[in-house]
Amino acid sequence: MIRTTSIIDGLTTSSEKTSRYAVDPYFRDAWEELVGIFGTPGEVRRFTWRHVPLVLRPDAIAAGRGELLLDLLRQWGLAPVGHAEVRFDRHLVREVWRYQLNIATRDRITMMDRVLVDRPGLLILLRATRPTAEPVCLDLRARKGPSDPDRRTPDQLRHVLSAARASVLTLVHSPDEPIDVVRDLAVFLDGHGIRQLTAGPRPPEEERAAVLSRLKELRDETGHHELDLDTARLSLGLPTDPAGLARAAQRVLAEVLTARHVGSWDRLVVAAHTARTHFAGYRAAIPDTDATAWSHHLAPPKED
């Protein structure tokens, strides 16, 4: 058995992650794969400092705006150096958010299935194009914005990419800390996929063109929708008076939650804005990491 707790040192400020990831098979799988690729633990730590995987979920692909996304990332000093298609199923949904879904309602989890399962996503590996004072995943975390739409600001990625204002429609996923960079790679990809993703970066402009081409193909599969609630209400012909609209939205939610396959983004958008999301008064198995805690760790990994 690998000495996982010593490996984790320097990858997280969270004691919960230190204990849980020490026995997490995804983290251990990806760590051993990355050491085999890069040669030493120090090189893996440097990789996690300079790189971050950004997953565009099916809702982000439906919303489009791939060029805007890549333009923003370039302004923030992040360039695409690899990508891989991911296909969501119910197991992937539960593993990506394994340590947060303990406080999610059944409605929320089912809505996540309806939005994500049997639909494609795209994982884009990003690399910092300039020296960074912190792991790039921390910077991207702040720039993407929170899952709660009421706490987002207009300059954050989730706000820019779509008019969606439901916490179920979060559009993108990225790891919070270097330790999550490692685990996420094994959650989304097998060993062969990790090796392909990190095999040797293409020039950023070449990779940008490849990503945009693939996003267009995937959007043709998912269908296009701005994820705007008013557009969805109008398309479904829902009543405009508040009481009638509330009753109609509850009917749509009930239909979406009980159906096996929901093809209409209009129905998903209305249901996403109607569903209960979290149980109040409980904490996630691993709460969000306090980014300020990294102020004591802000030094790039040393050579082995």
Rank of each mutant, 00 (worst) to 15 (best):
P178M: 15
A210W: 05
R50N: 08
E226P: 11
L189Q: 03
L92C: 13
H91S: 13
D288Y: 08
H261V: 11
L73D: 12
V270I: 02
A293V: 00
W76V: 11
D107V: 00
V93N: 14
A271Y: 00
L101N: 03
E43Q: 12
V93A: 13
A60N: 03
A163Y: 09
P301M: 02
R143W: 08
L123R: 04
L56W: 10
D228E: 10
V52T: 14
R90K: 14
T277K: 13
I103D: 11
L56T: 04
V96S: 13
D290S: 02
D228F: 02
T231I: 07
G66E: 06
Q75R: 15
S6P: 01
A285I: 04
A133F: 08
C137E: 13
R98D: 05
D71T: 15
T5A: 10
E255S: 11
A285V: 00
P154Y: 06
P25R: 09
A209D: 10
L122E: 06
H91C: 06
D176E: 15
R87W: 09
S14A: 14
F47G: 04
P175G: 09
L78E: 14
L253K: 07
D118G: 12
G82M: 09
I109F: 05
A104H: 09
Q196L: 10
I286W: 04
E85T: 09
A199H: 08
A104G: 05
K17L: 06
D113S: 10
A62F: 06
T129A: 15
L212I: 12
S167V: 07
R65M: 02
T13P: 15
R119Y: 02
A62E: 11
A243H: 10
